[in-house]
Design a binder for these strands. Structure first.
Length: 291
DNA sequence: ACGATTTGACCATA
DNA sequence: TATGGTCAAATCGT
């Protein structure tokens, strides 16, 4: 009874490569046309209201084309370039330590927690108004950047079980995919600031909706479990510094388009593609379960 | 001195 | 067996 990894499933999910490539070609043509339209619009007066709106629309179209091409290309390429190089974060000090050989000491004795209280945020910042302590970092297969593991600073003094995992997205390096595990039970407020939030039961997504709120932030909902109220993410967006992350804080652009969020989903365990419905919603077709 | 971070080892799971 | 999640000693920073 062999369980297949997603890499092993990939060829099944992308059986018709030639059709894929034709679609990619079509998308490339569409992008080219959008570029031409953008060029035309650039000749319009800057302060012309409708022209500026049109430019925005064209930019979004371009991004949509680019990301669609990327998504298809990613699925098309069987060359899953391995976990790369070592672009890992190296802290200044070289550290060679000699572990005494009988290292048991209760090390690694733990239970994997259930993931019922899990949700995913995609944001330009991995800060929130909670104090986190980093407890691990790991190179992830097929991911350029390592995944960092944080737990609440108040784990011991207040017994707070909240944790989060932060992973920088390979194709949108200003974006971070943040997986929150468990609610904070420590004192303090919780205001998230996502561009996209996926509420999930750590299971496959089957339905992702376009942004509903006025801020242009994006919200995706798992149809498998509705463990959290959507209002959670719409309460407010205050940021304060996260002490544990301050030292590695990056300069980041504040504005991100929703397609970044979609891109991020590729960096997760999902394999599939997005389809836009007539009503404007996006549906994620899970290729893992296809065929 | 003490808390935070780094990083290799260990364990669970698919 | 490969991969991801967690632990904890060593190291760093204040």
């Amino acid at each position: 009874m062999e369980s297949l990894t997603w890499q092993e499933k990939l060829p099944q999910a992308t059986i018709d490569f030639s059709r894929h490539r034709r679609v990619i070609g079509q998308l490339a043509d569409g992008r080219e046309l959008a570029v031409q339209l953008q060029t035309l619009l650039c000749n319009e007066p800057k302060n012309h209201g409708s022209a500026s709106m049109a430019r925005d629309v064209v930019e979004k179209i371009l991004k949509t084309f680019s990301d669609s091409i990327y998504m298809l290309s990613a699925a098309d390429s069987s060359d899953v370039s391995g976990s790369d190089d070592g672009g890992s974060v190296e802290s200044g000090a070289s550290k060679k330590r000699s572990y005494s050989s009988g290292l048991k000491n209760g090390r690694g004795c733990y239970k994997r927690r259930n993931r019922t209280q899990t949700w995913i945020e995609v944001s330009t910042t991995f800060e929130d108004n909670h104090a986190w302590r980093k407890y691990g970092q790991k190179e992830i297969l097929n991911a350029k950047f390592p995944r960092c593991y944080y737990r609440c600073t108040h784990k011991h003094d207040q017994g707070c079980k909240a944790m989060k995992q932060v992973q920088q997205l390979e194709h949108h390096q200003q974006m971070y995919q943040i997986t929150y595990i468990g609610e904070h039970t420590c004192l303090g407020t919780s205001h998230l600031s996502p561009q996209l939030i996926v509420e999930a039961n750590h299971a496959e997504l089957s339905d992702i909706s376009k942004p509903q709120n006025s801020d242009g932030h994006f919200l995706a909902t798992s149809t498998l479990e509705q463990g959290y109220s959507n209002s959670k993410v719409e309460e407010g967006w205050s940021h304060i510094s996260d002490k544990t992350l301050a030292t590695s804080k990056l300069e980041m652009e504040p504005v991100v388009d929703y397609d970044c969020g979609f891109d991020s989903l590729l960096d997760m365990d999902f394999l599939g593609s997005f389809m836009e419905l007539d009503n404007g919603d996006f549906v994620f077709k899970d290729m893992n379960n296809a065929l």
